[in-house]
Amino acid sequence: MKTISTLLFAVCFAHVSYSQGAQVNIQQDDKIDKLLEIYKSALSSTEYYQIQVGFGNSSKAQEIKSNVEIDFPELPSRIDFDSPTYRVRLGKFKTKLEAERKFNEVRIKYPDAMLLKPKKSTK
């Protein structure tokens, strides 16, 4: 019994003596916050071209978006609601040349696709 008590005391003492208590204190330069604000404002004023591949009601738009994600997984796609229809749009192209090249590829699979003029980013 004395051996068990001694062993239990030793285990508890070893656990307490090896436990570590630490506190992390992160110091960040105020300039980083300013840079992030500049970056966000630059992104919000960026104009880009998009390709509209289809539109319709909500379920049709979801179906088109699913197909587009399979056919063009490298391009971001999204559904925009523009009353009364849902529009499926693809990509964010900085230059007209870049947009036209991809537009030619997309039109093979989606002949009704339209190249949209630059639009200010909302995200």
Results as ranks from 00 to 15, higher is better:
L90R: 03
L116P: 02
F13G: 10
Y110M: 06
V11S: 06
L43N: 15
S58E: 13
E63Q: 14
H15Q: 14
M1S: 12
C12E: 12
K123S: 15
F55I: 05
N67F: 03
K34D: 15
D30E: 12
I32N: 06
N25D: 12
Y48N: 10
P76A: 05
D112V: 08
T3I: 10
P73D: 00
S83Q: 14
D29E: 03
D71H: 02
I26S: 11
H15W: 11
N25Y: 07
K92D: 11
G56S: 08
Q50E: 03
E37P: 11
K123Y: 07
V106I: 06
L115Y: 07
F72V: 01
E69Y: 05
G56F: 11
N104K: 07
V24L: 01
K40S: 09
R89D: 01
L116K: 02
K2F: 06
K34R: 14
F81V: 05
I4R: 09
K92T: 01
Y18A: 12
D33H: 11
N104E: 14
I51P: 00
K65A: 15
K31V: 15
S45R: 07
K102V: 15
L43W: 01
F72W: 01
E100M: 07
F72D: 08
S41Y: 00
T46E: 11
T6K: 10
L8W: 09
D30W: 03
S77W: 00
P73A: 00
S17W: 03
T95Y: 04
R101W: 05
G91S: 01
D71N: 11
E100D: 15
I32S: 08
L97T: 15
D80K: 03
S44F: 04
P73W: 04
Q23E: 13
A14W: 05
Q23T: 15
K96I: 13
D30S: 13
K40T: 02
K2Y: 03
Q27L: 14
F13P: 12
